[in-house]
Nucleic acid binder design. Structure first.
Ligand code: NAD
Ligand code: NAD
Lengths: 209, 209
DNA sequence: ATCATATTGTGAATCAACTCACGACTTATT
DNA sequence: AATAAGTCGTGAGTTGATTCACAATATGAT
């Protein structure tokens, strides 16, 4: 199952490539070069060729890559044929925004259920996603493996623990808490305050590189 | 103005350190070691010492770092004494969530104004932030240097250009568009679909590293 | 067929970041 | 005063990722 040793940096770019290739396809383009891709996704063309090369020789010299073929390949690699269901915990400002958004547009990923502790929210439905009582997490979660965490930072740790106990393996964490997680669970942090502050810092201290 | 050659990776961690130090301070702690910090922010202690060392010798051997002193130092370094005003463009699901959120809690950063094209939204106020007509961007923007971009991807490029023309230097871009930006403007991409898909990919292909 | 042009795939060089491991120094203890 | 314990700051080694640059090969035009 484990692809052999794709660099992590490469793995993070795959969804980006995939999305752009779908674009090309819908425009009826059948051929693309690393240079062209590079302009579109803003990644150096050599990096793109290197990225693709980890999967074998996908292109043809002097020609480029066949969009259809590449796309088929990525579809398999990114498991696009399988529907991935994720849970969202914390239906506040941010959580609700995610519920309104259709991740399926680009992905095979769908928010299948949501949880909250607020009686006002429990039992409601947002964009077709039911909001359950967080107390029923263990009962409802089923075998969902990925969760989006948008609860207040103060309960991030406790919530993570409950999720992990239910077999969740990956969490996209939007709280500023640096979660004290069980070792076997993968957590990606997206810390918007930090991103904003870092951007400001860069502007000030690294003038137009 | 430009601090000499702080690695970018370090610069991105500064806000994280800063936030945790404020925590310590509010708990009345006056002393902290790199080891302790490491546990809290989940960054290797050697990396923390290295990070701090770019700014000179901030600590004392055998003792650690003085919280108050460190904090004062970071406050200056991160320009926390100056209030940074940013603009938000696109008051949709995501944009509205940001408006509701108080970035000032951890930062000196404040969303000062918002823009949208929807007549329903123009003229309203969300959490004290006025929503202007995007047509009035040039008139209202004043000398704001940073923008949060939460418009539909289709207008990301055009909007960026207008922002750049008004002197905006940095954009936090939440649209999936890989913006074709003027060279002198700094863009940080936060692509939530990509993050989610990458997380799923990692779970599948890099089982508990 | 031949030639000019395009573009891949990759070895090698470079760059950036992280981590180890230890000497130097501080503080606390006896 | 001497010793033990703790912690920094950093040289050196390592790891990971990017980029250069070019031989190999395919295409398309004549
Ligand atoms: N909104 C933003 O722009 C923004 C920006 C940066 C960071 N964040 C972080 O994202 C997280 C969510 O932010 P938000 O603005 O949506 O906050 P919010 O307060 O609007 O939403 C939090 C939601 O979690 C629910 N909740 C509380 N305790 C819970 C529990 N134990 N189990 C399940 N649900 C629970 C609340 O009822 C609420 O609906 C916070 O940690 C915040 O710091 C948000
Ligand atoms: N909501 C999410 O969870 C989510 C997730 C991933 C990516 N995104 C991306 O973030 C962006 C915003 O998402 P959203 O869900 O908030 O969309 P949305 O449609 O709710 O909001 C977009 C807002 O932009 C406004 N707008 C349209 N054209 C404009 C223009 N020319 N100038 C100014 N404002 C304009 C619209 O009136 C609307 O209020 C999109 O690009 C989307 O792909 C959102």
């Amino acid at each position: 199952m484990t692809q052999n040793k794709i660099p992590q940096a490469t793995a993070k770019r795959l969804p980006l490539y995939y999305r752009y290739l779908r674009n090309l396809q819908s425009q009826g383009k059948s051929r693309v070069s690393s240079k062209e891709l590079s302009d579109a996704v803003k990644v150096d063309s050599a990096t793109i060729r290197r990225d693709f090369s980890y999967f074998g020789a996908l292109g043809k010299k002097g020609y480029g890559y066949n969009v259809e073929y590449l796309l088929g390949f990525f579809r398999k690699t990114l498991d696009q044929d399988e529907l991935i269901e994720v849970a969202l915990v914390g239906v506040g400002n941010l959580g609700a925004a995610f519920l309104h958004y259709n991740f399926m547009k680009n992905n095979n990923i769908k928010i299948a259920m949501a949880f909250d502790s607020d009686p006002e929210k429990i039992g409601t439905e947002i964009s077709g996603v039911h909001v359950y009582n967080i107390d029923d997490l263990e009962e409802k979660l089923d075998d969902i493996k990925v969760a989006i965490l948008t609860v207040p930072a103060s309960v991030a740790d406790a919530t993570t623990e409950r999720l992990a106990d239910q077999g969740v393996e990956g969490i996209l964490n939007f709280t500023p808490a640096r979660i004290n997680a069980p070792k076997h669970i993968r957590i990606h942090h997206i810390d918007l305050s930090v991103e904003l502050q870092a951007l400001v810092y860069f502007l000030k201290h690294y003038p137009l590189v």
